[in-house]
Design a binder for these strands. Structure first.
Length: 259
DNA sequence: GGTAATGTTAGACT
DNA sequence: TAGTCTAACATTAC
């Protein structure tokens, strides 16, 4: 489930498990996820140490001696740290072995994730035209970036060039909490409504991190645990609606989110 | 067996 | 020009 909260949980996980240990072996198990030249990647990382982590939106950076390993998790990626190869995840695409005998795997069932080597994090963010991180952005910058957009509020929230980190599931949650129909046009929202969206966005993302982005852990008045399988609105019991917005399935409560 | 699934991106279209 | 839609990428589950 890799949106901002998931990737933040991954970041903390790598921080907790994989820093400051020498990497004694690197095996690329599937070259299709590797953006960097495989030989250079293996040569650069072998014998190196993960020193630090940094996250921007859904993008994760792990600091090496003089460069960074970049990770993007696509729709189905996740890191896993483990002790014996029996615990190797099923769709492991990249395996690191540490000097303490533990392993770190980059598991990615659908292979839509990417791993690369980059020189500099800020340069990467600039080159990709990424907006400010959704957790770090302040209110006035948020307003500047969203205000005046022509499209739908849901599309704006998911636009990584405006704000980085929000995807399909969390944009649905933010709009559910804000009681706004996903296809509300941004230009129909006034500044107070946008400020409220800002506050809710921060709150929802922080809750997501606190719940470690595990569906079952979310508060019951969130739409996340109810959005699939013809769920009902946790507030009023109405059957949730489903529409396509920007090509993605959006769930919403037809009673509350009608603007 | 068709459809859809947390992401990104290119190209066609309005 | 900005924004939307569709398809493509790859794999699996319902």
């Amino acid at each position: 489930m890799p949106e901002l909260p998931d990737v933040e949980v991954f970041r903390q996980y790598i921080e907790k498990t994989s820093l400051d240990k020498r990497i004694i072996d690197v095996i690329i198990k599937d070259e299709r996820i590797m953006q960097a030249d495989p030989e250079i990647f293996v040569r650069t990382v072998t014998g190196n140490i993960f020193h630090s982590t940094h996250r921007h939106g859904k993008h994760l950076f792990v600091g090496l001696d003089t460069s960074w390993m970049y990770m993007h998790f696509g729709m189905s990626g996740q890191p896993k740290y483990f002790n014996t190869m029996e615990e190797e995840p099923e769709h492991n695409r990249l395996l690191f072995t540490f000097e303490n005998g533990y392993f770190l795997a980059y598991d990615c069932q659908r292979r839509l994730g990417k791993v690369d080597l980059i020189e500099d994090v800020d340069g990467f963010i600039t080159k990709k035209n990424l907006g400010p991180d959704a957790l770090a952005i302040d209110e006035s910058t948020f307003l500047d970036h969203i205000k005046g957009k022509r499209g739908y509020i849901k599309s704006a929230l998911m636009n990584q060039k405006l704000i980085a980190g929000i995807g399909n599931i969390f944009s649905d949650e933010i709009l559910f909490q804000a009681r706004l129909y996903p296809k509300t046009k941004v230009r129909h929202l006034d500044v107070d409504e946008l400020k409220e969206i800002y506050t809710i966005m921060k709150d929802v993302l922080k809750t997501g991190i606190k719940c470690e982005a595990e569906e079952e852990e979310f508060p019951d008045d969130y739409i996340i645990p109810h959005r699939e399988k013809r769920g009902i609105c946790p507030i009023c019991g109405a059957n949730l609606g489903k529409i396509k917005v920007s090509g993605r399935s959006s769930y919403f409560c037809p009673e509350h989110q009608s603007k």
